[in-house]
């Protein structure tokens, strides 16, 4: 948050970074090859999903089921495009709507749950939705659905989806900006800090939580729809992949929950790392991913702010602590 008097200097820095980012992303169509374009598209997708998670995350509620809405969007687009010849953009809009509707329907009772109970309930919803979709005849059961492949050159297809994801991210960014930087941001932070006390100063906590959950679900729905068309094939395993819940969560956490740019930065860093892991340690890429999660939690629990504040000091501190505790003459198991 930083407060309203957050400092002009920080504003200038952010604007500069934003400008450079915009130039790089805007010109990518000119300089990037297909591989880079695909990587950028993936980063953008995760950036949008991380922003989506971050909306409810700002209230302190941790959803472990966002992939449910991603999957609903993906399946809506797949079914509408293959069976009803609906255009992609319209299908994605409907997917977003359905995802948000589901979020509001399940969120209304579930957002009364606190802490771990809410997290597990959302996880349960995601798994239940996957199981149900995997059993539906018109959703292709476990076999999945093949979508129409765009009739264009391969490079054009890459460019198309790059632009689509870029637009989704910009939309999510605009929405996040309006929500987090305005008076709404204070309501969300108040809910995070103390929900009862927030009610006592007139904040309609239920409405805020529900609308954030719904807005996040809508972004997930659009993202999932774009993903389905992009991959041109989905099945329950890929459309409801738990990593699609986990990675955005981790990205938002790394970047700073409740901040505007944090999820974007987190998505950039983690996806580049994940891609590096994927290409260099194919067999161990999940190990690398897991190690990344452990390291983030242990060393940068406050997100990138911790990275900037001399992580090596923290590292040294932890190592010294470990040595003192386990390296000395004391029996280590005591």
């Amino acid at each position: 948050m930083g407060g309203l008097a957050g400092g002009v200097r920080r504003g200038v820095t952010v604007a500069l970074v934003g400008l450079v980012g915009a130039v790089v992303l805007g010109s990518a169509l000119l300089w990037a090859n297909n591989y880079v374009l695909r990587l950028l598209t993936t980063i953008l997708m995760y950036a949008a999903l991380a922003q989506a998670w971050n909306l409810l995350g700002a209230t302190g509620y941790v959803s472990f089921g966002n992939v449910a809405f991603f999957g609903i969007g993906a399946y809506t687009v797949a079914i509408l495009m293959t069976r009803f010849d609906v255009a992609f953009v319209a299908a994605a809009a409907i997917g977003a709507f359905l995802a948000a509707a589901l979020a509001v329907a399940v969120g209304f009772p579930m957002l009364r749950l606190k802490g771990h109970y809410f997290a597990i309930a959302t996880l349960g919803v995601a798994e239940a939705v996957r199981e149900i979709v995997g059993n539906l005849e018109f959703a292709g059961k476990g076999k999945g659905i093949s979508l129409p492949v765009m009739d264009a050159e391969i490079t054009e297809i890459y460019q198309y989806f790059y632009i689509v994801m870029l637009l989704i991210v910009l939309g999510a960014l605009l929405a996040s900006h309006l929500i987090l930087s305005g008076r709404a941001g204070y309501a969300l932070v108040a809910i995070r800090e103390d929900e009862d006390a927030a009610q006592m100063v007139g904040i309609n906590t239920t409405a805020w939580k529900l609308s954030m959950f719904g807005a996040g679900a809508a972004i997930n729905g659009v993202g999932g729809g774009a993903y389905a068309y992009w991959m041109s094939y989905i099945d329950p395993v890929s459309a409801f992949n738990f990593l699609v819940t986990l990675m955005p969560l981790l990205m938002a956490l790394l970047g700073g929950v409740g901040t505007l740019w944090g999820p974007l930065a987190g998505a950039l860093i983690l996806e580049v790392l994940a891609e590096t892991a994927w290409s260099h340690f194919l067999e161990f890429h999940r190990t690398v991913l897991g190690a990344m999660m452990v390291l983030v939690v242990l060393f940068f629990p406050g997100g990138l702010r911790d990275v900037i504040h001399l992580p090596q000091a923290r590292l040294v501190g932890i190592l010294r602590d470990l040595l003192r505790r386990y390296g000395g003459a004391r029996r280590w198991w005591c």
Binding site: M1, G3, L4, G182, R183, Y186, A187, V189, A190, E193, D194, D196, A197, A198, V201, G202, I203
Partner: peptide, 25 residues
């Protein structure tokens, strides 16, 4: 039960923003 990680003024600001709904930020 204040909002502990916010400043004193932000705490009170939230009351003014949402208790009356008459004010711009």
């Amino acid at each position: 039960r204040p909002f502990p990680r916010l400043t004193v003024r932000e705490n009170v600001l939230i009351g003014a923003l949402y208790g009356t709904r008459a004010y711009r930020t």
